[in-house]
Nucleic acid binder design. Structure first.
Lengths: 335, 335
DNA sequence: AAGCGATGTGAAAACGATTTCACATGCCGT
DNA sequence: ACGGCATGTGAAATCGTTTTCACATCGCTT
């Protein structure tokens, strides 16, 4: 049904078949001044002999890889999954390729992948750095390629960034819970990223403004860590509500609550960052702070394009709003 | 903190700095016969002037991209997310890069990406094709690069493949439900992939063996489709149990059940393919057929490596076992 | 002591495209 | 009718490596 051309067919073969020079073939495919007739002839010849441009060669010569690196903690985290998908859609639509890296919140792996991205000569990088690496950036460590940070950043890190306003979002959750009448609002925040720390800060500030106690813990950002942290939290802090800084922590927390036979929201109310499909399906539905994941990916690509176009423009940090989705897990019950 | 070398430093610069020939530098980095002393000298020089190999050049010359293409329907489907992660882990461990493509179950996009993968000259391809494309493969359409199919395949498609034994797995779910006493077991299967069709076939066979009616529907593989399909299914078929062929369908179905105020498992029992973190958190817990996602990714990489090593070996299809995770959603209640 | 294979090295070709440069052509205004 | 300018084309250089090839050196065997 389809004959396979084993011998490599290059631009020269097309040139010969079309009766033009290799340069003309190149121009027919790329952007070069070329007459419509020749372009048609070249395209016909290329189709006839089954020519496919060799991207390695193109990239080497043009010094433009049209590839962007995407470094996230773990693609299995639904937040990053969604952002990645948005980024890829735009990238492919622009004829760009995406190389995905999972850092597992490990600075060593980050360093390794940053190296790899340099060797790839990626056109740009979209990166969700760990706290460690972000701090290094604040100290002056700069990536020498167009970079946009997502989900995590700080004003003096020297790079563009997109994320939600974490402090505000955390305050939103606290205010919501407080307005429901909860007074002992605990928090489980991820320790590996500034995101967790920022959210904790926003949480703390909002509590303080209301004269409520800070009952937060920084934990490793995994379901297992949240699950393990609950018993101690419950015993020591006796919260009537808990905020988790991402959906993995919410997952672990729910499991632990089940084990302890604590009822939501009667014994303990819940609210979490990240709205996943399943948050509306658990009983009670989970109150969540939804992040505009698609928009984050899109905005990151836009910032990156700007940065590539103008490498020495002033850096920008785009703060997108989170949206509070109220569900039963944070509803005050009469008791 | 870190000085940025703007001028490109190449192998020649290293050669000069180390007092050797470019060829020697190349050998020091790649695998070539080289004396330990020179290698050390080269490495020192490279580090000193901050040399980073240019992968485009390397790939062009060596005709080996050390890159594999990964084409799946949608990375946001947790099954593919998990498989992708497993694939990438192995790939990077072997010094390979992965290019990810989302086909959205669209044959046109598949064709487009296959083109792109050819232009990348990928070393190999891991691919979850739509039913349409798989049928084309059965008709003789063959990819002329080492390819391993995942999740979807057929014996005569001409490629290696890894997946669970879908017929057996479906039968497992049916048998489980039947043994609980359910007799009107409906099914919602994805229409875009052979996986859905295969599972439907296994389901139908298992039902037939027990003399039970086939109450299945093929639907578009999305939560929305499942949600939309339920009312008609309930009205027409009056099932006492439903099987869904993936977690997205389960999600949609659960939502629809909630809307209709149907109780699980009292009014209708549930069992689904794919075990996600949240399946144990909904109430009642969802009985699921867990796929060995990590193992699937690993096995795919192994098959691919073999295929690359030996392009004309006989094709193999690896069937991995699924594991039934029983939870309350399929428990027979007294009524 | 001559011959031989194994080993390490450098010079130069090659990978497949893009880009520079030179040049031919046609069109315009004067 | 001529100079100038825009436009389209081809020859050749180039991108940064790896790989071939030739060759020098060394240690062995005979």
């Amino acid at each position: 049904m389809k004959s396979v051309s084993v011998e490599p067919v290059g631009i020269k073969d097309v040139a010969q078949a079309a009766g033009v020079s290799p340069a003309t073939v190149s121009r027919a495919f790329g952007r070069g001044p070329i007459s419509p007739e020749l372009r048609a002839k070249v395209e016909a010849a290329a189709r006839a002999i089954g020519y496919r441009p060799n991207l390695s060669a193109r990239r080497l010569r043009s010094q433009d890889t049209r590839t962007i690196g995407l470094m996230v903690a773990d693609i299995r985290n639904p937040f990053f999954t969604a952002v990645s998908r948005a980024v890829e859609d735009i990238a492919y639509a622009q004829g760009m390729r995406v190389i995905l890296c999972n850092t597992d919140e490990d600075p060593d792996r980050e360093a390794f992948y940053m190296q790899a991205m340099q060797e790839e000569r990626v056109t740009g990088l979209i990166f969700a750095p760990t706290r460690i690496t972000l701090e290094a950036m604040e100290q002056g460590f700069a990536l020498d390629l167009p970079t946009v940070l997502v989900d995590r950043a700080s004003p003096r890190c020297g790079h563009d960034a997109v994320m939600i306003d974490n402090r505000r979002a955390a305050a939103l959750l606290v205010d919501h819970l407080a307005s429901q009448g909860f007074t002992r609002i605990a928090g489980l925040f991820g320790a590996a990223s500034t995101t967790g720390v920022e959210r904790q800060a926003g949480y703390a500030a909002a509590l303080k403004a209301r004269g409520l106690p800070d009952l937060s813990r920084l934990v490793s950002p995994s379901a297992a860590a949240a699950e393990a942290a609950l018993p101690e939290l419950w015993r020591e802090a006796r919260p009537d509500a808990v905020i988790t800084s991402n959906s993995l922590l919410a997952l672990g927390l729910l499991k632990a609550l089940r084990v302890q036979a604590l009822r939501v929201p009667d014994d303990i109310a819940l609210a979490t960052f990240d709205d996943e499909p399943w948050t509306s399906l658990v009983d009670p539905g989970l109150t969540a702070l939804a992040q505009p994941v698609d928009q984050i990916g899109q905005e990151a690509m836009r910032l990156l394009a700007d940065r590539i176009r103008n490498p020495r423009a002033e850096t920008r940090i785009v703060l997108l709003p989170g949206r509070l989705v109220e569900r039963a897990s944070s509803r005050r019950t009469s008791n």
